[in-house]
Simulated assay, not measured.
Amino acid sequence: MRKIRILHVVQAAGGVDCYIRMLLKYLDKEEFENIMVCSQDFHKGDYKRLADCFEQIEMNRAIGMSDLKSIRVVRKQIKKYNPDIIYAHSSKAGAIARMADIGLKNRCVYNPHGWAFNMRCSEKKKMMYAGIEKMAAPFCDKIICISDAEKQSALDKKICKEEKLQVIFNGVDIKAYENGTHGKVKREDLNIPEDAFVVGMVGRISPQKAPDVFVRMAKLVKDEVPNAHFVIVGSGNQEAEVRKYAEDNGFEDSLHITGWVNDPMSYVELFDVACLLSRWEGFGLVLPEYMMAEKPIVATSVDAIPNIVRNEENGLLVEVDNAAEASEAVIRLYRNAKFKQNLVLQGIKDVHSKFDAQRVAKEHEKLFEELVR
């Protein structure tokens, strides 16, 4: 029996790129053949051992007339490779791929990786994004939601009928992490004392991830825990604002911003408490990564996050934009070692039972087989 050929169309890099590489790593190579058709933001070398073919085309994030050219080029690639399944990743590629595939004889799967209409933006933009999703929904066979919250959002917005939606929770590569090298980054590399209490976050320094709330929380924690240090693993357009707040409030020497790094988990290993204070979140993949690294979590109770973090069981949930509540949660973990350890132990159980990348691949394999066999 010949392999099932899947043509992946993807525009957004970042987390989506990581997701696809993880998926391709664990998809059965005896049964599936993977073709990448991706934007200029991707790197061919990253897919050398993962994809059977790699095509790079111009796809822009912003909506514009260039999308018509992208649709024509993607349609040409579909005809060239004649795949069994088109797998469109993220909103922009999802719209382009589904339009490009109209009238062609294959199956089409779409994964928005977090609905655009759930972002914090104007009501006008939310309505536009939801309208685009409704118009494109008839042109695919299945829509994969990365959490129960994402599925419910689709139902609330009447994007499509429920039977078209399938939840496949995100996952993390536990095997790679456990077999990897640990302790590569030392506290002294960041000028952090060994006895410091380290609170960290991984994410873009941009409004979605609320670095402004993180640094305000840091000030409140610092007032109570003088030897506290704070690490932001990432980069973004709010970095200057965050640094200025720390400087104005006298703890700039205790704030460490790494910029973009290849191995964020090496920095997560330095944390005593791990935070994700997002204002909106399609999934929050860093949360199971925190659990994998055996870190207690403080996160906002928004969108899909409560699907992963259960308050008082495997982490602590706080209100969005509430620096005071976040600081209280962090200080509680600082003062109660037993409670902190209980959260960590439950997190370890959860990440192995619910959020393993190999489970994500198996669920995709089953879906693909059902669509074409």
Rank of each mutant, 00 (worst) to 15 (best):
P226E: 07
C18P: 07
L7C: 08
N262M: 13
I57Q: 04
F339Y: 10
R335A: 05
E370P: 13
R332Y: 08
I132E: 11
N170A: 11
C275Q: 10
E188Y: 08
I35T: 08
G15C: 04
G282V: 04
Y334F: 09
Y81K: 09
V360N: 06
G45D: 06
C108L: 02
F197G: 03
G282I: 04
F139M: 08
G234A: 03
I192K: 00
K92G: 04
A299D: 12
P138T: 10
G131S: 06
D223L: 05
L270G: 12
E363L: 03
A93G: 12
L285M: 14
K295E: 01
I143L: 04
Y245C: 05
T181K: 12
R120Q: 14
S206T: 11
Y129G: 00
K164W: 11
A299N: 06
A176R: 12
F139L: 13
E239C: 03
G250D: 11
H89N: 09
R75C: 05
P193M: 02
A357S: 14
E150K: 06
I143N: 13
R2V: 06
E370I: 07
E289L: 00
I146T: 13
M265C: 05
E123N: 15
C38I: 11
K219I: 02
D28P: 09
K126A: 00
